[in-house]
Design a protein around this nucleic acid. Structure first.
Lengths: 110, 110
DNA sequence: GTGCTTCATGTAGACAGTCTACATGTAGGC
DNA sequence: GCCTACATGTAGACTGTCTACATGAAGCAC
């Protein structure tokens, strides 16, 4: 997977993974990989800053927890994040539709 | 359309538009807009450098032409570009599939 | 013949977000 | 003691798009 391709879609991915329930960074990375069938292996150096960015703008909130002696920062979707995710989803549909109609070899339907 | 979303997909778009037949930069921009139903309005400052980059790596070739007193640099898909476009198309399918399966609210089919 | 719009190409520098690589520390198996 | 898995984080490089500007000819209105 070409890394550049993810540009501008990370937010949607992260918000979507956290939507189902609160998760910490490491688990988010694993969830991304799992839910994409192994196609998305996003490095930690991408995910952690992105999560902090999303928290800064208010789409996520976080709190520390200690599980089995390990510290985790658990992220949760805010109302703002939920609205944002909706927007991201429709933007994704528009995006794929636009690119798809350019890439499709055959001309559009009659 | 969020500009960042196009990152890493410009090559595919440009190669795909030129696939049908040789075009010059200005016409490529119009074709992108038309084929996407107006969704893609890519600025000249993006397209011209990208075309030169694609020529530099051998996916496009260009030649000057004068039409109606105006100079045009017309781009044509090379064999290398054609192969690249094939790769871009399958990469696009993988990409949308991966992101889509993460974004889709419902879990994957049983 | 001046001014406006369209056509047409191009460059310079700002910008932003991902990537690589590194740093740190605990828990648990061997 | 050592290695792997878990877990978070930062610094700086990288790259490609964006904004804004520069240039110039053709065609039309007035």
């Amino acid at each position: 997977m070409n890394p550049d391709a993810l540009r501008g879609h990370m937010d949607a991915l992260l918000l979507s993974v956290v939507e189902a329930g609160p998760l910490h960074g490491y688990a988010i990375i694993e969830a991304l990989q799992e839910r994409s069938g192994g196609a998305l292996s996003v490095p930690t150096g991408t995910v952690y800053p992105a999560l902090r960015r999303l928290e800064r703008v208010g789409h996520l909130s976080s709190e520390w927890a200690t599980v089995g002696g390990r510290k985790r920062r658990t992220y949760r979707l805010t109302d703002s994040g939920r609205r944002q995710l909706e927007g991201e989803r429709s933007a994704w549909r528009e995006f794929t539709s636009a690119i798809g109609s350019v890439l499709s070899p055959g001309p559009e339907a009659p």
